[in-house]
Design a protein around this nucleic acid. Structure first.
Lengths: 204, 204
DNA sequence: ATTGCCATGTAAGGGGTTACATGATTAT
DNA sequence: ATAATCATGTAACCCCTTACATGGCAAT
């Protein structure tokens, strides 16, 4: 495990929930953390094999629900150690790439209509996400109160992040849209240069 | 331009601000959109060469401030066309990978202290970001009012996104931290399985 | 009959980062 | 002298996605 890939850790994390096959891992990720993390089969299956070679997981064949038999993996004590070590390391900040923000940033080249459409699309998507989060929220909240020493509080914290994020995006969409609606025609050119001033350097 | 890379479009966008060298592009990105977009030299220079081959930009040599001469590129009309076409296409939603959320999600494996540290680190970083945004905000706000038919309203919209995002993150950090502080010891295990229920499918 | 889901993998390709090579000039 | 900034590029590497191959079982 000297790579920088976080796929193996993601898998180890999933296996602390219950033993899973590669297929299960994908399913689990897709119905829990989809909105801030994803893995593809092309990553999962090879990683699972390597984790087994390293003794961090142990696989056994089981009859699948239907179709072919499935290989179910269980995390070993060494695997738990490895996961814990990773969980305690600080997460390195990665610059995200928000394409819609980039398009908005250069939106003056095409006028407000295009940007308004982008914002509208983002708004609709975000509303759907928010509805989904809200549906989980109640159950997790109850569970977190009933069992404080469980996963629930952690999962709730992450979920709350999704809720707050979505609400913020909706607010931003509305604010930005109303600002852009007040604008005139496209193509208006303002003089050269003038990047925003940079107070202080970036580190993080 | 049949690739899916957004580097060439980013560069074209920069060149609508003013003619720039590859070095300038990097500088500009770093003092404007760093927090939601980045490009490395390894991407910029080759892209610039290809853009020139395709006639979307035109380069000329100029004496640099110091050191070697710089090659400054200007966007052509064809380049503007290409950029506009891209700006009008919908941005495809990409699942981001928030490592700190992932670590928090699996944080029950190490107990609340580790997660609290992560949140504290995130909080400090976010506070710095927010201070930087606020410093730009006033100026851009004024400029957006003075010149509504300029870049300013678009840049302000993007910047406001940064402000709202940062404020949201701070709120979330505090909320999550206080929730986790109330928790007991690590290692408490709750029964098997029980992924959050998934109401409705994911599309987007 | 055909579609859809379960289930595991491989191969290719690409976008992107990091490190390195080079070197002149200015500030300390 | 030395470090920092300006400035352009190349090469290696790697993570990740996409597409493909395979195939049995259940439901329409």
């Amino acid at each position: 495990m000297t790579t920088t890939s976080r796929t193996p850790y993601t898998i180890l994390g999933c296996l602390t929930v219950e033993p899973m096959s590669g297929y299960d891992v994908k399913q689990f990720l897709e119905r829990s953390v989809v909105h801030f993390w994803s893995e593809s089969y092309g990553q999962i299956y090879p990683a699972l094999q390597q984790l087994e070679e390293e003794g961090l997981v142990e696989g056994r064949d089981e009859p699948g629900a239907r179709g072919r038999t499935k290989r179910v993996y269980e995390i070993t004590e060494a695997g738990r150690e490895e996961l814990r070590a990773w969980l305690e390391e600080p997460a390195e900040p990665v610059t995200p790439r928000y394409e819609h923000s980039l398009k908005l940033f250069f939106g003056y080249n095409v006028g407000p209509e295009a940007s308004l459409e982008h914002l509208e699309r983002l708004r609709r998507r975000t509303e759907r996400d928010l509805a989904r989060y809200r549906a989980w929220e109640e159950e997790l909240e109850e569970r977190a109160e009933r069992e404080p020493a469980s996963r629930a509080p952690y999962w709730l914290a992450v979920l709350r992040g999704g809720v707050l994020y979505s609400e913020m995006v909706l607010e931003w969409c509305d604010e930005s849209a109303s600002r852009l609606r007040d604008l005139g025609e496209p193509g208006a050119d303002d003089g050269p240069a003038q990047a925003p001033p940079t107070p202080g350097e970036s580190d993080t």
